[in-house]
Amino acid sequence: MELEVRHLRVLCAIADTGSLHKAARRLGLAQPSLSTQLRRIERALGAQLFLRDRTGCRPTPLGLAVLSRARPLVAEFAAIVTETRAAAARAAGGFHLRIGATASRAIPGWLRLLRTRVPRIEPTLQMNVSANALLAMVAAGRLDMAFVHEVEGCPLRIPAGLCLRVLVAREPQFVTLAADHPAAARTEVSLADLAGDRWMVDATVDGEWDALCRVLRAAGLDSEMLHGDYLTAYSLAATGEVVTVSQPTAHPRPDLAIRPLQGDPIGVRLLLAARTESELDGAYPELEQAYWAVAHEAPVYRRWLERARPPGTPALPGAGGQAHALPVPRRHHGMPEARRPQVNGGP
């Protein structure tokens, strides 16, 4: 067996994730197939590269030596492929911008603006619940950029060499509950108001399960936690079976109530990642406009921003691109330092 770049990618993915299961998910392979590939690579090199136990996989000393040579080769090959494809697309009169993203209502508007404003660019989209997987794909040259969210307290694994642009330094996460839930009558809901409710979150979204567990424990609650995708969670929330975390830009529905949580205990950072600053410059303005357009259309989020904004900051752009009388910070649009998250009034 002769080693190829794809085999080096396998080694890097296992080392980065520390798990055959997670590496297989990142690479789009079945775990048995990945395990077979790793055994073949180790046989070809004549040495064990990873130690496997119940806690995962970690490189042996020889594995670390191989990885130190493999990583720059994988990165260089990805750069060759990306640059060659881009040059070929430009010569043919067009360019496919490969975008990855976690869920956001800003995405349709972003793609529309890119098509309108950037001649000959055709954006393509790959969705994934895992921000870490998307960032790895950008670093490997399989995507040109990724729009992801980082859950507070659960830092993402940012691959070396990526450039980041912060769209929102701290976006509060709201709660979605049935429209006839007693707490829906309030403009702001405390965690204590939801003490008797079950929560449903998608545990495959990087950091969300851990963040909610941490917040509930800090509030002294031992709420039942259910795993489910957010489409299911919203359906069950509408019938009063569960409550769930939601993005503040979520579209209003007559059978659901979207409310801020008192003290804003759960927050995320919204990031755009690419391999170069010039790539970020070419797509960030459209993303920024698309995001604040959907924020403008979300009445509960607009009211939260009005309360959270510091005095004298620029106006929020509306859906048509015109400034409206809702000031927010221009670059990061994050929550001001004076309004850090609290749980039930605590520090």
Rank of each mutant, 00 (worst) to 15 (best):
R85H: 12
W110P: 03
S68E: 08
A298L: 15
A44E: 10
A237E: 13
P252A: 11
A203E: 01
L134V: 06
C12I: 14
R165K: 13
G153T: 03
A86N: 04
C154D: 14
L287C: 01
L167T: 01
G207N: 10
L164G: 07
A325V: 00
L73K: 09
L51R: 13
V168M: 05
P123C: 00
L156E: 10
L280R: 07
A295M: 01
A88T: 00
A146D: 11
G28H: 05
M137Q: 13
R309E: 09
L162I: 13
T204K: 11
D229R: 09
P252I: 12
A315K: 11
G94N: 12
A250E: 15
T239E: 02
H251C: 11
T276W: 01
D180A: 15
L226H: 08
G321L: 05
R253I: 05
L62P: 04
G220Y: 06
A184S: 15
H296K: 03
V81F: 02
V189P: 04
V268D: 04
V245E: 03
P341T: 11
L73E: 06
P72H: 11
A91C: 07
E288F: 09
R26C: 08
Y284L: 12
L256M: 02
L134T: 02
R331Q: 14
G267N: 10
A290G: 02
H7N: 12
D281L: 13
P182Y: 07
P119E: 09
H296M: 10
G153Q: 01
A88W: 04
T276L: 00
A179V: 09
G267L: 00
T176R: 12
Q322K: 10
R170Q: 12
M137L: 12
H181L: 10
A133L: 07
L256K: 04
T60E: 04
I14C: 13
I258H: 10
R198D: 05
A283F: 06
R339A: 12
